[in-house]
Design a protein around this nucleic acid. Sequence first.
DNA 1: GTCTATAGAGTGATAGAC
DNA 2: GTCTATCACTCTATAGAC
Lengths: 195, 195
Amino acid sequence: MARTAGSHSDITGPRVRDAALRLFAERGYAAVSMRAIAGEVGVQAGALYNYTPDKQSLLFDLMEGHMTELLGASADDPGQSPHDRLQDFVSFHIAFHHARPDAVFIAYMELRNLTPENFARIEALRRRYEDGLEAILRAGVAQGDFDVADTKIATLAIIAMLTGVNTWFRDGGRLSLDEVIAQYWGMVRRAVGAA
Amino acid sequence: MARTAGSHSDITGPRVRDAALRLFAERGYAAVSMRAIAGEVGVQAGALYNYTPDKQSLLFDLMEGHMTELLGASADDPGQSPHDRLQDFVSFHIAFHHARPDAVFIAYMELRNLTPENFARIEALRRRYEDGLEAILRAGVAQGDFDVADTKIATLAIIAMLTGVNTWFRDGGRLSLDEVIAQYWGMVRRAVGAA
DNA sequence: GTCTATAGAGTGATAGAC
DNA sequence: GTCTATCACTCTATAGAC
């Protein structure tokens, strides 16, 4: 990783974000210094400020990027049956979160380190994602496919259950990710009273 | 809270723990200084070291106390039916966690700020709690009361789902805690295929 | 048991040379 | 665009007076 002084902005920028993502996930935002991020990238601390106005913006940009990607990748098709839409959601949620454990961890753990303004913006994105699942549950109840007493509670319960996979699942373990997805889908399907 | 110099050890000790619990939950371990804890208690920072050898021990003692209390309070009766034992577990878990949100939050969020030795001890306690639920599920499967493909996965899924209540439930909201417990029990009951 | 004072290290962010 | 140097604090933990 030897580097001479000079122009590297096009590669240094992403490397700063990657290093911050990894270190924030590993040690927590408050415990990571700008010097530590710089060391990971291979520059001095002062150089980071060419890529972010401050540490807070670095955190916010990572979280906003993750949430935007999450919303963009979740493709719900209201033309399908609620049953199929819910199955797709379960499969998507587990697979998407499994593919980016650091970003997921930060999005859940570092909310309190956002300024109030930044917190409100991330919360709004998270809420939009929840609303997507609740719409599926409501459609299923309306069509008589699901038996759910309170769609809001069921939404939160299902998301908490699915996100929990990230805390224990590791590739190469007893079960493949597809097997895990199948098992969670089985539990979700029955929890909502789907046929 | 006026106080003169002198002997207050019997009340200051618990106050240090209470202040640390509250502040760690609110801002995170790494973001809370010993001065902040001392300020909350009404003493100078140096005085805290009469009650804890260092900041790390303060965190560990809070987490170990919480986990020990959790294990002591969960009273499973293997003489009951698996159905009743599971219902009791759901009810107990939600109510116990609701009663001490700060300790629960710390127990989940600050694991990475423990030294490796302390982490291993807390993990062992958490594992014992999980094993309690898994024993119930296995008994239910053995007796033909439950239909669960993998009791370990179901254990983790149920605990994640139930613990999630703490992230959104607030007293005085749309639903009472008893109503929430009833709804979660309905979802858990169906997820494990109980009659 | 609590105080003040301090050691020794680390913090985020900026200025100006190259 | 990156460097070095630095400002102005803050941090944990300890020593010794009272």
